[in-house]
Design a protein around this nucleic acid. Structure first.
Length: 609
DNA sequence: AGTTCTTGCGCCCTCTGCTGGTATCGC
DNA sequence: AGCGATACCAGCAGAGGGCGCAAGAACT
């Protein structure tokens, strides 16, 4: 922005911490015939001009007023303007002394005015199609938490109705999150005044608050015009901006005065009154549409109709290629993609994966990024989706047994039979009886198993089938995993076999249990065990990796609740050394929950500590 | 205002690979 | 009988398929 000169308190870009601090200034706009929008502002005297590939940008600052002139380009396409800031310096105090800044304000200050520039105007960034304003605020002026409520005055394009300022209120829920800044509250007021018709549309702004450059105590607010960020015209990262194919459409879009209906109860916003009204019903218990068959009530006719279809079995959308039928057309389309057309519109950019649904692609991408947003509250495990976490939580079920014993008023039905239960534990125990059913029985022997795949493998022991052949030698295997082990062991030159060494004699073994068995014998040969240890039953537990001196250490606490608390704490902080909390009192009482060898381990651990 | 299309979330399932424990086999 | 290797079994977790449903967006 060479040559730009402004000296003004540009309150059009003023942010005010609280509503009562809001400037009483109202922007005056003049709609000029040549499509130039003049915005009258505040004292100053300077003039800024900049050429732009999209059009001319002018900011005329005269005494007592600032005029920012946005000259539309020849093709009337909305040009892209980027305002970038420089930082408050130690001289911001001087600015306040000069009356340019009220305390807690951020002003726009032209470069080259002899005072430190606060914001300069730049032509459209080549990297972005967003119309945006970036403002940096020194943290001494605002801290992130203070940015809870800001008031912006935004220069509107010439379509803004005269007399309507575009001040917008925004609440920053999170200091580092992108949020929508909208004019909804203002419009709500205008609606009361009858100033806007319902057809008027909102203008979205995206406000991002983030810390500034490293080493600088600043906050950078970037205010982006949402309306120009059309997905169809938004270039992918790394691509040069492309001219909009439908300029008339985009121009219309950007020139419309938009508004938003914002829910006071949740974060919901909508551009349509009808959607807003429908949403608001979700916050009420009003369910005027009652099913005549079961008296269940619903908010909308459509929901009731879908519900009644579950009674009647009505599924109007029938698949032409199979017997499936669905309540909605969308379900049918999705079904056809899955089962018949195999159309997968959502393609992964990192691999060949494609999916029918966007959510599946989103889930898939986590396998590339390693993102695991779903953290287990009891251990370090984190999952990529909710179901896996839910499945994982079953492994903690023995710790949380008491939670399973709450009486539930609603009956819980067994998924395998017609039995019902009011206690979750009883249900789970019952379902286990189904789970342990060995439904798959061998035709050739008495072997039975729970899973079909195991039966498939077992049957091969009768047929002699070994479908997994090694390509490097003639060996064949009944199981793929055995082939894999073989390949690693005999044909993979990089394969380093795991060796478990006997801690007594150092002899190596390929399997931990063999080493363990050897070690016990080696132990008894080399040193006679103490009488107390002689009768000790060896507790079986999973060997740690590596297998060197895998001794479990116990943290002895007093009371079961304390033990549970410590367990939770330890699981969240593996760095604490993997201590296993255990209730000494319960152990001493000889609880059935603690076997004798565990007690011995515990005592050893106490001695160790 | 009603209807239809689209989107997103959640739930549950299967398939698969890996790993560990146990049983069995062969030397 | 002892020992090592192999076979078998089972559980957990990763990945993905398929569907139900609510709600937003678009259309009539």
């Amino acid at each position: 922005m060479a040559g730009a000169e402004l000296s003004v308190v540009p309150k059009q870009f003023t942010q005010i911490k609280e509503p009562e601090l809001m400037l009483e200034k109202v922007l005056e706009e003049e709609q000029k015939e040549d499509g130039v929008c003049r915005v009258k502002g505040h004292p100053g005297s300077a003039e800024l001009e900049a050429g732009s590939t999209h059009g001319a940008l002018q900011a005329n600052i005269q005494e007592e007023e600032l005029e920012l002139v946005l000259a539309t380009p020849e093709d009337n396409e909305k040009h892209i303007v980027t305002l970038q800031s420089v930082h408050f310096t130690s001289e911001d105090g001087a600015l306040q002394e000069l009356g340019w800044l009220e305390e807690g304000q951020v002003g726009v200050q032209p470069a080259g005015s002899g005072l430190p520039s606060l914001v300069w105007l730049g032509e459209g960034s080549q990297q972005s199609l967003h119309q945006c304003v970036a403002i940096s605020i020194q943290e001494e002026v605002y801290s992130m938490p203070e940015l809870e409520r800001l008031q912006f005055q935004v220069l509107e394009e010439n379509a803004t109705p005269p007399g309507e300022d575009s001040r917008s209120a925004v609440s920053l829920a999170g200091s580092t999150e992108s949020i929508k800044l909208d004019t909804g509250q203002k419009e709500e007021q205008l609606l009361v005044e009858g100033g806007l018709s319902e057809k008027a549309e909102e203008q979205f702004f995206l406000v991002e608050a983030r810390p500034g450059e490293e080493g600088r105590d600043e906050i950078v607010l970037t205010i982006s015009n949402f309306t120009v960020d059309e997905p169809e015209t938004h270039p992918a990262a790394g691509e040069a901006p492309v001219e909009k194919a439908d300029e008339t459409h985009s121009q219309k879009k950007t020139k419309e005065v938009k508004r938003t209906f914002q829910c006071d109860i949740c974060v919901f916003t909508s551009s349509r009154m009808s959607s807003f009204n429908r949403h608001m019903k979700t916050h009420t218990s009003e369910k005027p549409h009652v099913c005549h068959l079961c008296l269940k009530a619903f908010r909308t006719v459509t929901l009731l109709r879908n519900h009644i279809n579950t009674h009647t079995g009505t599924r109007p959308y029938k698949c032409g290629d199979c017997d499936m039928a669905f309540v909605t057309s969308g379900e049918l389309v999705r079904h056809r993609r899955y089962k018949h057309t195999h159309e997968k519109p959502f393609k992964c950019s990192m691999c060949k994966y494609a999916s029918v649904e966007a959510s599946k692609l989103k889930r898939h991408i986590r396998s590339h990024t390693g993102e695991r947003p779903f953290q287990c509250p009891l251990c370090s495990y984190a999952s990529k989706d909710t179901y896996k976490l839910k499945r994982h939580m079953r492994t903690h079920s023995g710790v949380h047994l008491r939670n399973l014993h709450t009486y539930k008023a609603a009956e819980m039905k067994c998924r395998y039979c017609s039995a019902t239960f009011h206690e979750r534990y009883a249900l789970i125990q019952h379902q286990k009886t189904h789970k342990n059913e060995k439904r798959f029985k061998c035709e050739h022997c008495s072997y039975a198993c729970k899973q079909e795949r195991h039966m498939t493998v077992h049957v091969r022991t009768h047929t002699g089938e070994k479908p997994f052949a090694c390509l490097s030698c003639d060996k064949c295997f009944r199981q793929k995993q055995l082939l894999n082990v073989h390949l690693k062991k005999y044909h993979d030159t990089n394969f380093i076999p795991t060796v478990y060494e006997c801690p007594r004699c150092g002899k190596g073994f390929s399997r931990w249990n063999n080493m363990k068995r050897h070690s016990e014998k080696c132990d008894s040969e080399q040193e006679k065990p103490a009488p107390s240890e002689k009768g000790r039953r060896v507790k079986k537990r999973k060997p740690a990796v590596p297998k060197e001196a895998a001794t479990t250490r116990y943290l002895v606490v007093n009371g079961a609740e304390a033990a549970a608390e410590e367990t939770a704490l330890m699981s969240r902080a593996p760095s604490l050394g993997g201590l296993v909390p255990i209730d000494l009192g319960e152990a001493a009482a000889g609880s059935e929950d603690l076997d004798e060898d565990l007690t011995c381990e515990m005592i050893l651990a106490v001695m160790d500590k």
